[in-house]
Amino acid sequence: MGQTAGDEGKTAKDRELLSASAAFDGDSSCIGAARHLATGFLTEVQAVHGLPVSERAMGMTELVVSELVTNAVKYAPGPVMLDLTISKGGVRVSVWDSDPVLPDVAATDPQRVGRHGLEITLAVSQGFEVHREPVGKRVTALIALADDPGGSIAGRTAP
């Protein structure tokens, strides 16, 4: 695997991470394309690289990608970038958009229709981060690849 711009200080092992990325125009057609990229990536991770990916992980990754990309398309003008990386027993789903406003979970309201994407993402992810970027923000969720009734991933255990 060759070196790419920006990885000058990384070791060969760091560059060997399994990953896939795509930039989208930011219109609603990119949501399906992003889901397709995620399922294709995890299918390859399993078939070519032999890493176990449970059906739950496949479905939850597709759901999180869909929710995060939908939010980016809905609330941020312009392009959307999706990065998928295998890291510490999970898949890291990272979505960048141009809006610097950080997302927040809406207050519980049984009458509310919609605006549940972030709630869903938090419920099915083992980790979640939001960072402002020089332009826009990056929202990242971690989803375990293998089913684990004990709720642990990479040494982290559930309360």
Rank of each mutant, 00 (worst) to 15 (best):
G50M: 10
K74R: 06
E133S: 07
V93A: 02
G136C: 07
V48K: 15
S21Q: 14
T11I: 12
L84S: 01
Q3H: 11
D99G: 05
A154W: 08
E62F: 11
V101Q: 08
P149D: 11
V101S: 06
L37I: 06
V53L: 05
G150A: 15
A76S: 05
V101T: 09
S94P: 07
R138I: 09
L118P: 00
K88R: 12
L142C: 04
G151F: 02
R56E: 15
A5V: 13
L17F: 14
P100C: 04
A146E: 15
A107N: 08
A20W: 05
K13T: 11
V135S: 15
D148Q: 07
E67F: 01
L102Y: 13
S19V: 05
S19T: 14
Q126I: 01
V73F: 01
Q46L: 14
L145I: 07
V91M: 01
T43C: 10
K74F: 07
I143T: 01
V73E: 07
T39N: 11
D7M: 02
I143C: 00
L51Q: 10
G90Y: 06
P77L: 09
A20H: 04
M1Y: 14
L102N: 10
D104Y: 11
G136E: 04
S19E: 09
H49W: 12
P149M: 12
R115F: 11
D25E: 15
P79R: 10
A144R: 00
A158P: 06
R92E: 12
V139Q: 00
K10P: 08
A23W: 11
L37R: 01
D147S: 08
A72Y: 04
H49T: 07
W96E: 00
T121L: 03
V73A: 02
G78V: 07
S21F: 10
A22R: 03
G151L: 03
I120D: 01
G89S: 01
D27I: 12
G155E: 08
R138Y: 13
G40M: 11
A123F: 09
V53A: 04
A33W: 01
G32T: 03
T43Y: 08
L122I: 07
F128S: 08
A107Y: 07
P110H: 13
L142F: 05
V124W: 05
S28D: 12
N71Y: 08
S28I: 04
G2T: 12
G127S: 08
A146D: 13
Y75F: 15
V64R: 00
V65D: 02
A12Y: 15
I153C: 09
A76P: 02
I86E: 08
G59Y: 06
G78F: 05
G136F: 05
A158E: 05
F41T: 01
A106Y: 07
Q126L: 06
A12H: 15
